[in-house]
Amino acid sequence: MNKTADRIAAVAFLAVGSLFMAESLRLSKSAYGSAVGPNVFPFLLGLVLALLSIKLLFETRGYKDYKDSVGEKPPRQYKKFLIIFIAAVFYATLLETVGYVITTFLFLVIGFQTMERGALWKSIAIAAGFSLGVYGLYVKLLQGTLPSWPIWFQ
Rank of each mutant, 00 (worst) to 15 (best):
I83T: 04
L141M: 03
V109W: 11
A88I: 11
S69Q: 06
G17E: 05
S34E: 10
S123R: 02
V40G: 06
V101T: 08
L106R: 07
I83C: 02
I54F: 01
L51D: 03
P150K: 07
G144H: 04
L108F: 15
A31T: 11
R117I: 08
I83K: 02
L95H: 01
G17Q: 02
V134N: 07
N2D: 11
E72D: 13
A5R: 08
D6E: 08
G99F: 04
F43R: 06
Y78K: 05
L52T: 11
F81R: 09
W149K: 15
A87G: 09
Q77F: 05
A88H: 11
Q143I: 14
G129C: 05
V36G: 09
K55H: 14
G99V: 15
K80V: 05
L146T: 12
F20A: 06
F20N: 05
V48P: 15
F153A: 13
K73V: 00
P38I: 08
K29M: 14
P150G: 08
L56E: 01
P75R: 11
K64S: 06
S53T: 08
F13W: 15
A87T: 09
A10K: 03
A22R: 04
F81P: 10
F153Q: 15
I110Q: 01
V89D: 10
W152V: 12
F130M: 05
A87K: 12
A119M: 08
E96N: 04
L106T: 08
I110V: 08
T145E: 03
Y32H: 14
V98E: 04
L120N: 10
K140F: 13
F20D: 05
K3R: 11
T97P: 04
G133H: 08
L47T: 10
P74F: 00
W149P: 06
Y63V: 00
P75W: 02
G99T: 12
V70R: 04
I110N: 00
T4V: 06
V89I: 15
G118R: 06
G33C: 00
R26L: 04
S131R: 15
F105C: 01
I126H: 10
W152T: 12
G17A: 00
L45G: 02
A128R: 13
